[in-house]
Design a protein around this nucleic acid. Structure first.
Lengths: 204, 204
DNA sequence: CTCACATTTGACCAACTGGTCAAACTCACG
DNA sequence: CGTGAGTTTGACCAGTTGGTCAAATGTGAG
């Protein structure tokens, strides 16, 4: 185990390599389904060597989770309460869809964990995420009160965005099988834009 | 292993008990995360006794999958091409949402499997499911051609229904944490009805 | 160059896993 | 009853898994 001095060049490189490999393996097999040997060899290290940098498989996993949760929620933080409501929401949808396309492993890592009851995330979900969601809800409420977007249940609105965008990463195999030869992401944004414009454009 | 004579009373009871227990365990931990001991004791049987009824863990899992896939797709088969388009789609959404509420374990079983690449389902997905989806797409196309519903990408429309309804089962923990104390399912159908009415009502 | 410290490794371990097997027990039916 | 099939079990096994450890090797600051 490296001392808690400032990390060596090698330490930095190897910890990064391990986390990258772990993302690959965990997102594909889930926590229980992944083995430390798998992760180690994916990282190009021997098992004991990997365990020199992290005390346990669990430690790798939780570090990965908490490191990525922030990244994952960034698009939502960029939502600007002062912006043009429908365009803000569409921009958020686009950022989320882009993340599904560019970071499908991260999406599946979370999906795996949450489907199985999020035993290692429930804490962060009920504090950090909950706070962010409450904030967002107020933004949506304000927009509705001002008549800028149509009235719908704000939290269900947010869920719908998560659900629709992450679906393309989490259920990629299914989507691929059913869309081929068409590219799923090509038509997705157009569909989602139509959907949210029609749902949210205020009605006279 | 029971002979392939007509099944005994005990055989029927125990096979059913095992599959029920397996649904519980597999849906919570995924295939790799579940152990045969867990399933056996959840079924109230000893491990060797359970393996007397099924040759292997894998056999239990695949039997469970193929047994449930039909049930899972039933709501889609009930879609009536001759019905009133928007009401037909809303009825389908409602049936799917109801299944998420009443059969969340089944939903999570599939979710787990598909997130991890569906290694044991890809076959059925690309044949049975693909056929059903192609059929449905034609129904949607016909409705759009007749001007009964607004024009959107039919397969993305179908994905959106799956995604939005199953989200409430697959990500139940997250939804619960973020909705409490409100009941998620209470507002969900109202939200989805609004969404699909606004998106699909033909515009002049 | 050297020496304290960081890194890497092969050998090892205890717990767990999926699965087997022969022996024991139970049940339906003549 | 009794008997043959269906059912259940404890003991067992080989392979895998997460993790440890002492010893060997590399590295960089003085």
């Amino acid at each position: 185990m490296p001392k808690d001095r400032s990390p060596t060049r090698i330490q930095k490189r190897n910890r990064a390599t391990i986390l990258e490999a772990a993302l690959d393996v965990f997102s594909q097999h889930g926590f229980r389904g992944a083995t430390v040997d798998q992760i180690a060899s994916a990282a190009g290290l021997s098992k004991p060597n990997m365990l020199y940098y992290f005390p346990s498989k669990e430690a790798i996993f939780t570090e990965l989770l908490s490191e990525l949760l922030d990244t994952w929620l960034d698009p939502l933080r960029e939502l600007d309460p002062a912006g043009e409501p429908i365009e803000e929401i569409l921009a958020y949808v686009q950022r989320k869809l882009q993340m599904s396309q560019e970071m499908p492993r991260e999406s599946r890592l979370f999906a795996n964990e949450i489907v199985q009851g999020a035993p290692r995330m429930i804490e962060e979900l009920s504090t950090d995420l909950r706070a962010l969601v409450d904030e967002t809800e107020q933004v949506f409420e304000a927009w509705m009160a001002a008549g800028k977007i149509a009235r719908v249940h704000p939290r269900h609105l947010l869920f719908s965005i998560w659900s629709l965008t992450q679906h393309y990463a989490d259920f990629e195999v299914q989507v691929q099988v059913l869309m081929q030869p068409e590219d799923p992401f090509a038509g997705a944004m157009e569909f989602l834009e139509t959907l949210y414009r029609r749902m949210l454009t205020p009605h006279p």
